[in-house]
Design a protein around this nucleic acid. Structure first.
Lengths: 332, 332
DNA sequence: CTCTCCTGATTATACGTATAAGCAGTTGAT
DNA sequence: ATCAACTGCTTATACGTATAATCAGGAGAG
């Protein structure tokens, strides 16, 4: 049944032989090249042969020839980002796949600037999605000059170098603080996780809290019961806490309850991410959800448009913005 | 400073010109080819030139030439697997990267057998890690014949086709059930989640429970408070429940407590995954942890060894096994 | 009838790399 | 002194694809 020589996957030459045409014709037909002039009859023969042989184009050869792979590179460590981002990535992966791209998470975390860009270029990606802080002007220029059509930044504010997806952590912290104040909290604090990688987000959210309440305290906290217990027992607690996210909120609340303190009566607590566990805790957790102005599908579409040259890539533009939305429950 | 013509990334030819040698010599030096006979002086010149130009080999060209990419393909949807597997993937990604591979999650979820294998082969991966259930003998043969050195299955039991990573879900369910019985539960039930993708794991874990208690009831449950509440209010509850995982356990416990039932006095509950939230819930959640007989580093090393031909690929072998370990807390 | 234009193909080439094969100059054995 | 073997390189080639350039043949215009 398999008519290819040897036992490697069939190539376009094998398809050509099977269909009785030249390799070029196979390529013209299967890529739907608009400049191609091939009769309907021949197209059918080629497609039949390709299907019969189970032909799948060699990605490397295609990339080498065109100078561009279907790869969308995300040089991030999935483990280091929040739950929200993980979910967004999962959906993005799906969206890109339906559009013919492969989302590759290529975790080069140490390099920055031009050196990082060069290592990314080994894959000749069509697009790169990366923390804006790791980009420099020369790096962006190098990427564009080397055929990367879309460079998209992730940041907590618009980037002057590239179009960006903005996660407004300050606004998130501010929204939480505003609610705590309105509810009657007089002394505020914000948790900043000690975990490497998320501490930056923690500081940005703290800054947002301090936009509203300049004197808000900072609670540095590792994710451990012991440390949470120690902080609660140390006393001198504020009456309103923004706990960085829902998991830290749960950690804090369990420590507070163990110490005999009531939530929200003694200490009000606000989480973030609006995870399913919010409704399962007692009291139910008030949380700040990150609403996106654009869905993963929109984002993928936007990037696809830039790659295909249908849309311009505008530095400073905000491709999608994640804005805080308060979900009020019982804990604050 | 940049001595390359045009503005595309430098190639080995550019490096050769800069070092005053031929392109072949550059390749010999930079790949550390053992058959190469190049003087130390020349090697230095080549390496200097490469560093100066910021040369990074084109992955596509290398793949085309060698017939094999540095890609380890995992055709899975990350969103569909459990928290444990997600964490394992994150660590695997890191391990593979340090060994020079790129772990690519290429989510072709619908295809099976030879058709799936063909689509995977477009990337000429060095290794494929995939659910064993999607493999067939011809598919495995095709992969091997096409240059894929290591095909590793994920399964709840050893696979006759390939070496496998075994997640022993039955044993996990059985361990939970055994504990519940020893604690004094007379009527058992196991939750099977309705979520697509994880339901199979749920059924396997239920089967494990029934190995211990043949008459154990099955509770089909979607992750929603309404449904959990409905089930609790319907009455006729068992006095011991294995809740599939920690999150479903929390869902169930919150519903039980809302109905005025006590955990574990009225209903004992066991979760799985041993997430951090186990110690934050009240009562603290008894959970079954999946202990690995091999770390992600070991697994990556094993696969690397097979790819490099240092280790044989043995069908039926168990590369790593995840075995249940009970963590007893207050909920059961 | 000749020339141009169009159709539907083919032939030729380049992408960047790894590696087999070849080749000049030197060394060692006989 | 002669030839083989070795050293340190170079030249040549193939991987599989996309696409520019070319070409045979027929249709239509003059």
């Amino acid at each position: 049944m398999n008519t290819t020589r040897g036992d490697r996957p069939p190539t376009s030459v094998d398809v050509a032989r099977a269909a009785g045409v030249s390799q070029a014709t196979v390529s013209y037909v299967l890529t739907d090249n608009p400049h191609a002039r091939v009769s309907e009859e021949t197209r059918r023969r080629v497609r039949d042969a390709a299907a019969r042989l189970g032909y799948v184009p060699d990605a490397a050869a295609r990339t080498l020839r065109t100078g561009r792979s279907g790869i969308v590179l995300m040089p991030l460590s999935r483990a280091r980002v929040g739950r929200l981002a993980q979910q967004v990535f999962d959906e993005l992966e799906e969206e890109f796949r339906t559009r013919g791209y492969t989302l590759v998470q290529y975790g080069e975390r140490t390099l920055k600037g031009v050196a990082a860009a060069r290592s990314w270029l080994a894959l000749r990606p069509s697009a790169v999605i990366v923390e804006a802080a790791r980009l420099t002007r020369p790096a962006v220029d190098l990427l564009h000059a080397s055929g990367v059509r879309a460079v998209v930044g992730l940041s907590d504010q618009p980037s002057p170098l590239v179009p960006a997806v903005v996660f407004d952590h300050r606004a998130l912290g501010a929204a939480a603080a505003r609610h705590l104040v309105e509810r009657g909290s007089r002394r505020l604090a914000a948790v900043v996780p000690r975990e490497e990688g998320v501490d930056a987000m923690g500081r940005a959210r703290l800054a947002g809290v301090r936009e509203v309440v300049p004197g808000a305290a900072r609670i540095d906290l590792a994710f451990s019961e012991e440390e949470a217990g120690r902080i609660v027992r140390a006393g001198d607690l504020p009456d309103g806490v923004f706990a960085y996210n829902d998991e830290y909120a749960m950690l804090l609340i369990s420590a507070l309850q163990d110490a005999g303190l009531r939530v929200p009566e003694d200490v009000a607590v606000v989480g973030a991410d609006d995870l399913p566990i919010c409704t399962l805790m007692r009291p139910r957790l008030t949380s700040v959800h990150f609403d996106a102005t654009a869905s993963p599908a929109d984002l993928a579409g936007e990037i696809d448009g830039i790659v295909r040259g249908e849309r311009p890539s505008v530095a400073g533009e905000v491709v999608a913005r994640f804005e805080p939305r308060l979900v009020i429950r019982a804990s604050a």
